[in-house]
């Protein structure tokens, strides 16, 4: 019974993440699975904050802080430099937020994916620009409150997982912090593959979503069990594997824990339920083929 996760101690205590931060928990399993023979690339984001106030670092590995639009390009350069030096063991990982991935860093990521560059790209997706005061990103879900969508976001969340799978990269996976063993397994799997590997990790932002300090893992699991964020893997854009999917849990159980949804009326909740059900059914068809 219980989880069994092998960790190498790369991620340090004393980092500056908020109490209960899901992103810090995700970073623990990402860098502790990749190990010290890794070079990190981090754009401006909470991840940059958690990486440590200069000159201290929370990660016992080299980390390069790049610009917001250039994570994938920077990782490309480092990976190619390592190859040119004959180093075939050091891994390169870009760890970026959803703003730096879905929006500002999307061009460089898409083109790196198209060229199948040899690095791992991990998006810690908290569905908004949480580091700068919770503005909306293209990852913010339909009707969620942010500082820049005070009446709720009028458009749905961009489906980046499917966009990245459509690049036909060797490995694409979704993960979330409520399932740490699954997250660590996916990072380990990505580590053993060459080419561009992409993992999008749903990391509930306690402050930006309006959650209790202890609610990160719980809301993360509800995202999965309601079908909002199914956990699955796609190899070469074709082979789909479902890890954890919808259990048919009503969407209200997920929404009611989050203050960013507290303005919703019953009709809007039902609208979200229909959207989630449709998305889940559309995705579910891909597992049977």
């Amino acid at each position: 019974m219980g989880y069994q996760i092998n960790e190498e101690k790369v991620f340090n205590s004393g980092h500056a993440a908020c109490p209960g931060c899901s992103e810090a928990l995700a970073m623990r399993y990402i860098v502790n699975t990749l190990g010290p023979d890794t070079i990190g690339v981090v754009p401006p984001s909470c991840i940059a904050i958690i990486s440590g106030p200069q000159p201290l670092s929370s990660m016992r590995m080299p980390v390069y802080q790049t610009t917001l639009e250039a994570s994938a390009a920077s990782a490309t350069g480092i990976a190619r430099a390592l190859k040119a030096k004959g180093n075939d063991h050091t891994k390169v990982v870009a760890i970026a937020g959803d703003g730096g991935t879905y929006d500002i860093g999307f061009q460089s990521l898409s083109s790196a994916a198209e060229r199948n560059e040899d690095f791992i790209y991990i998006c810690l997706d908290n569905e908004g620009y949480m580091n700068t005061g919770a503005q909306k990103s293209s990852s913010t879900p339909y009707l969620a409150y942010t500082a820049s969508t005070p009446a709720g976001k009028p458009t749905p969340k961009k489906n980046l997982a499917e966009i990245m799978a459509a690049h036909r990269i060797p490995y694409m996976a979704t993960a979330t912090t409520g399932y740490p063993e699954d997250l660590a397994r996916k990072v380990a799997k990505a580590k053993g593959i060459r080419g561009l590997r992409f993992i999008v990790v749903l990391t509930p932002c306690l402050d930006g979503w309006g959650l209790a300090d202890n609610a990160g893992p719980k809301v993360s699991r509800l995202a999965v069990e309601t079908g909002v964020f199914p956990l699955y893997e796609v190899e070469n854009g074709e082979h789909y594997t479902l890890n954890y999917g919808s259990k048919g849990t009503p969407i209200n159980q997920y929404l009611s824990l989050q203050k960013r949804y507290r303005h919703l009326n019953q009709a809007q909740i039902e609208e979200i339920q229909i959207e989630v059900d449709n998305n889940w059914q559309r995705l579910h068809r891909k597992f049977s083929t």
Binding site: G14, A16, P55, S57
Partner: peptide, 17 residues
Amino acid sequence: SIWTTGWTDILNTGTWR
């Protein structure tokens, strides 16, 4: 070439508690 001089584990974040 390296700006980092130490690790965050010298910071006592327990004082936030």
